[in-house]
């Protein structure tokens, strides 16, 4: 590639401008979370009273930590369940033979086309009848498995050499044992990917918990922030921004740590 020296500063300038655009909302959110609300209301973006008072207020006056805990519980349960049920399902489609296997697989594949957003009305009626409303279960049970997860793991399990299965059969391993001892360890990278995917998917749920939770005891963080926002008739911007920062920091930490693998993975892939 042509790399002229005069272009270099220009490139950095563009990079820095782009970085400012991307980081701007973060920085502004964090900065205003340090300002007293009274100053923000006056339209000032500078104050002589920089402090973490808004954070103390958010933790004391709102259920923000409870929301975080709820989200963590819900996402962890969903993740664990999807890992188990999707891998079992995928195993069946790869290593078991039974009538209607292909038909069933295409049926499951077809469910990937149906958006959950278009099915909330009957699903609400279902969880209501099951008396699951306002409970962790309501945010976990409909997502115990996912068609996408089954599809993805099926692809991964198909990479397992048939010789392994033959050897296992010779040793007399049954399906449970083969599933547990061979299949899962073999596909651990795909499982890790599915774990990350299902955790974040659950963490980012917004509409469903909004419809099905009615108390702070079970409300996850996305709807907790909505709750804070709608509760504040006085526009307590300082505290709201502080809550948003409290919510975004854990995911950013996880992302920045995870970022390393991601880049290494890509770099290795690129150099091979």
């Amino acid at each position: 590639m042509i790399q002229t020296k005069t272009l270099k500063p220009l490139r950095y300038l563009v990079l820095i401008l782009l970085a400012i655009v991307i980081l701007g909302p973060f920085i502004l959110g964090f900065w205003t979370s340090l300002l007293p609300t009274a100053d923000i209301a006056k339209g000032a973006l500078w104050s002589s009273h920089i402090s973490f008072a808004n954070y103390a207020e958010a933790v004391k006056q709102t259920a923000i930590l409870r929301y975080l805990l709820n989200s963590f519980v819900i996402s962890t349960l969903t993740m664990a369940a999807q890992l188990l049920f999707c891998s079992l399902g995928a195993y069946a489609f790869v290593f078991l033979s039974f009538k209607g296997r292909d038909l069933l697989f295409y049926l499951i594949l077809a469910t990937m086309m149906l958006p959950f957003e278009a099915e909330v009305i009957p699903n609400f009626a279902t969880v209501r009848r099951l008396n699951l409303l306002n409970h962790y279960g309501v945010m976990v049970i409909p997502f115990l498995t996912s068609a996408f997860g089954i599809f993805m793991l099926r692809q991964a399990f198909r990479q397992i050499p048939p010789e392994l299965k033959e050897a296992a059969d010779v040793e007399g391993l049954n399906h449970w044992q083969f599933y547990w001892r061979v299949t899962l360890p073999y596909a651990r990278i795909s499982l890790f990917t599915l774990a990350a995917y299902s955790f974040l998917e659950s963490w980012n749920q917004y509409l469903w918990p909004m419809l099905t939770t009615f108390s702070d005891k079970f409300r996850p963080v996305q709807d907790g922030l909505r709750q804070l926002q709608s509760q504040e008739t006085f526009n307590n911007w300082g505290m709201i921004q502080a809550s948003a920062v409290i919510v975004v920091v854990p995911t950013l930490i996880v992302l920045f740590v995870g970022q390393h693998y991601f880049k290494n993975g890509l770099n290795e892939g690129a150099t091979k």
């Binding site: 991307i22 502004l28 917004y206 996305q222 921004q241 919510v247 975004v248 950013l252 992302l255 920045f256």
Partner: peptide, 17 residues
Amino acid sequence: TIFSATMGVSVSVAAIF
């Protein structure tokens, strides 16, 4: 790293910012 940062932002945080 900066360019990928918004991946860690959930919908309600983005909305509030």
